[in-house]
Amino acid sequence: MGVRGQRIFRGYFSLFINGYIVNPAPYSAKLCCIVFSGKFNAVWKWFHKLGAPKSFFEMTGLWLPLLGVLTILLLVTGMVWGLVFAPQDYQQGQAFRIMYIHVPASILAQSSYLMMASAGVVFLVWKIKLADVALQCAAPIGASITFLALITGSIWGKPMWGTWWVWDARLTSTLVLLFLFVGVMALRSAMENQATAGRATSILAVVGLVNLPIIKFSVDWWNTLHQPASFSLTEKPAMPAEMYQPLLVMVLGFYVFFFLIWIMRMRLEILRREHRTDWVRRWYAARTQHAI
């Protein structure tokens, strides 16, 4: 607790022990200052605006070119760096270069599920329609990235472990992740009613969160062929900088790519869902011929 926190705490404590209200005004004023200060208000307003389909569509329209350029820059840099300039591994030789696709795909597979499930929570709690759109659009991208993680892992496993596949904890729980993504997609397409489909897929996505810690800790909890995480937010990686720097670039590139595709898909879904509104009609009118 900082000095200021202590002062506030002591203030309320003295109120309590004295047994009568002295003057809570300074404290509540302080709290109000923090919560409703100009900056916080602006951020809140920005988020609120982002939640409305129309402003989301307008705002993201400006972001797309930037995200596209950033994706290309990061992925091209990371790939050339990883393929040509990173030093070869003393055990795996050149085959370790598979890492620059496999690791970003695996990291993104898990965090895209986390993002999808967060959208599910937002939809269940606040009933924001855009969260439902986000959930629906994240599922197919997440599925494809999880598929990529599995298949590249399999191709890496063959020369290193001598087998394409083993039914161990890490691989199996990642396969379950793929099924969860596909399950969300299937559930969505099986339900006619938009509102019930939104609720059902959100619940499925949130329940599936149980799988994420299992994937993460599978390499520590069970004996497995899969090596433990080479990366963590808190520790320095065990590999040399020349090896992990391109990996960081690739991870970043995959993330930006995910956001780019996610936003593109969400924009289309908004156009489909809001096709009766004036602004969508105007959007189409600007892109179609006016005369025969």
Binding site: M79, A95, I98, A105, T152, I155, K158
Partner: peptide, 10 residues
């Protein structure tokens, strides 16, 4: 064979 198929699929 392994490395390039991974990059191609990616």
């Amino acid at each position: 064979y392994y490395v390039w198929s991974v990059y191609a699929i990616g």
